[in-house]
Design a protein around this nucleic acid. Sequence first.
DNA 1: CTGAAAGCGCTTACAG
DNA 2: CTGAAAGCGCTTACAG
Lengths: 328, 328
Amino acid sequence: MDEVAILAKVSKPTVSRALSGSPLVNAKTRERVLAVAREHGYAVNRNAQKLRHKRTNTIAVSIDFLSHRQNHVSDPFVFELLAGVSEALGNQNQDLLLTAPNHNDPDVFQQMLLSRGVDGFIFLGQGHREDMLDKFSALGAPMVVWGAKRKKEAYCVIGSDNVRGGELAGQYLIEKGRRNILFVGDPSHNEIYWRMKGLKSSAENSGSSIHFSEMQLSNFSYESAYESAISYFSEAESLPDGVFAYSDTAAMAIIHALKKLGRRVPEDVSVVGYNDIPGSGFFSPAITTIRQETFLAGELMVSKLMKIIDGKKTKSETIKTELIIRDT
Amino acid sequence: MDEVAILAKVSKPTVSRALSGSPLVNAKTRERVLAVAREHGYAVNRNAQKLRHKRTNTIAVSIDFLSHRQNHVSDPFVFELLAGVSEALGNQNQDLLLTAPNHNDPDVFQQMLLSRGVDGFIFLGQGHREDMLDKFSALGAPMVVWGAKRKKEAYCVIGSDNVRGGELAGQYLIEKGRRNILFVGDPSHNEIYWRMKGLKSSAENSGSSIHFSEMQLSNFSYESAYESAISYFSEAESLPDGVFAYSDTAAMAIIHALKKLGRRVPEDVSVVGYNDIPGSGFFSPAITTIRQETFLAGELMVSKLMKIIDGKKTKSETIKTELIIRDT
DNA sequence: CTGAAAGCGCTTACAG
DNA sequence: CTGAAAGCGCTTACAG
């Protein structure tokens, strides 16, 4: 910057002002400074800037890798979410710091904040990190979480309208005449719990008598869902005629397992998934599912976080959810 | 830091040394300093540190979103790669800065380097960015690229052994008695070009007379592959009895399209994919594919990049490739 | 082993 | 509209 100042025959503060677009600088002076800077390939040192400013314009994004097997993220949904967040942060001129998969205790995150590495946090997926997130938010960290609302609203949560999603799935299955309905997923995940709740409530409101059962899943991978399904169905007294799976990936695994056991989808069993991941529509049979606006989600999370960092109040919000009817 | 120095009754430099684990500090002094620091929740300001140091310990990672439709990354493979890189960088205490999907010209990247925002770059996927990457590497930026080697080795490339992968696929198809072989993919992508080359060379070396054809694909999504396949097969004179698809996602789409047209897989047509993404094994039919060690890839890319940043020489390297035989 | 001094590259009152 | 001065929070020779 010194060099630019000398070449443009102005002082350092003027260069700084010209570069930052301050109105406190003569138009001609500005032009001269910018020309010199461009010519000499000068770029403001971001670290010096961050040191002086209170803000770093960097947001840490943490993905819930732990709910996936061996850090292999099988479900493309979280990736879509990440792409949305990445784009939204880019538009806001914020840097995205992706935290390492093995970082998962509040101290590590607090360290990032204290060392002024980042301004705030976006957590993609509550998973089984709820305690950690509670603790961390208690420290006053600016944060937004993708997931489901908690009883007491400790932090800002953006998520799918899981209850409504569950209801839509339930209504669809019941309309198809299904009366022996299986829910597939791990209800100890908050989001998944509410999807199941929605499913149940649609059954209760239907006026029909619905037999309801539940298949627990230990993680988010295709493999795990398939294995669990095979062993669950082998031991079950009767096979379901309707299935609502917490994700499209799981729905694919279930359909595969059902086929293996000689059940036809959708003739014998109707299946509804969740997320409408790319590929759901081209699976065979094409999967009926619940869609949510992922890119909108990214934008919403980022704008909420910006408000929180600026000290403004915001509320948790839910993303609209929609039934996509296909073959299953 | 001043506060810690006063409380620990030492000078600032001593605090700095104690915190950074310098041997130039008495064990007792160090302990006292660390205790005070811990007690007061003190964390070194990373930005000040970066300003003083030449290194930022931050690596920018750029994903080739442009080859995917509407920024929707359908192929989970690149996500696996990202997870691997993320873990490897975490182990090396490097921060991962994920660049926004719309950043795709050399100037933006150079700006990141000049402004001392990052030490180096990892590009996940060459895609159609080869010109950009050439230009950027010509500027002397430390970088590693996931992809395929170029004619002249401008930058360090880590990638699957695509030729070998293609050969393995070809040998498998030929052993299955297939003689009318279709390659699916966009050979203007370097990686995919070499897979096709490998396929062809296995055909030439087989001694049998193989009819070879090619189906172009415009992007990496499942949807696009399916649509292209339907229209390609409708216009083709004869349907192939063997298919090698550049990815498992594409293989799934092709299988679906073949089924739609009344062809049975694997009875009528054998299909080989690439990447062994989670789910390939549970697709129905389970997909025969080429596997590469993704997590090893992340580690390798990171270690190479570190060497380059440290001014050491490195060479491009190829990741071992293996045929996974399943149902197709 | 420890500390006083200088400086990394910016920006922000302050004064004009 | 512009510049001289101070300082953000560190670390690194330098001297002892």
